[in-house]
Simulated assay, not measured.
Amino acid sequence: MILSFSGGHTEQKAVHAMKWMIINDKLKQGINGIEWLVLQTHVTESMQDGLNRWLDHVINFERFEVDTVMRDVLKMDADAFYAKYELNWWMSLDCTIRNLNLIRQSDYEKYFSFLMTLKGVDKAWRHKQRKRN
Rank of each mutant, 00 (worst) to 15 (best):
Y82F: 12
D56A: 03
S92Q: 14
Y85D: 01
T10M: 12
N32M: 08
G8C: 07
F61P: 04
E35T: 11
A78D: 14
Y82W: 14
I97N: 01
E62C: 14
S113C: 03
I31E: 04
L118G: 14
L102Y: 00
A17R: 03
Q129Y: 09
G8L: 07
G33C: 06
T41N: 01
G33P: 07
I23H: 06
I22A: 10
I23F: 05
D67A: 09
G7I: 01
K13I: 02
H42Y: 14
Y82I: 04
H42Q: 11
F112S: 13
T44G: 07
K13C: 05
M91P: 00
D94N: 02
N99F: 06
G50R: 01
A80Y: 05
R132S: 13
D56N: 05
L118D: 08
K84E: 09
W125E: 08
M18C: 01
T41I: 01
L102G: 03
F112Q: 06
N60I: 13
F81I: 02
I34W: 02
Q105F: 07
M76F: 15
R132N: 11
G30T: 01
T68H: 15
N88I: 08
W89R: 07
N99Y: 05
S113Y: 04
L115M: 11
S46L: 05
T44C: 02
W90Q: 14
D72Y: 10
D49F: 14
N32D: 12
G7Y: 06
N99G: 03
M1T: 08
V43A: 08
N101C: 10
E65S: 08
I2V: 13
V43P: 03
S113N: 12
N24I: 00
L87V: 04
C95P: 03
I23P: 03
R53K: 13
N24D: 07
S6N: 05
I31Y: 00
M1Y: 01
S6V: 09
R53V: 11
Q105S: 12
K110L: 15
S46G: 10
D77L: 04
T117Y: 14
A80F: 08
H9P: 09
I97L: 04
M18V: 09
V66D: 00
E35S: 12
E109C: 10
H16N: 08
L93F: 12
W20Q: 15
G33T: 03
Y85M: 03
Q129N: 07
A14Y: 06
Q129L: 15
T96L: 02
G8Q: 12
M18S: 14
G33Q: 09
A124Y: 12
M91F: 13
V69P: 02
W36T: 02
E35L: 11
T44Q: 06
Y82H: 09
T117F: 15
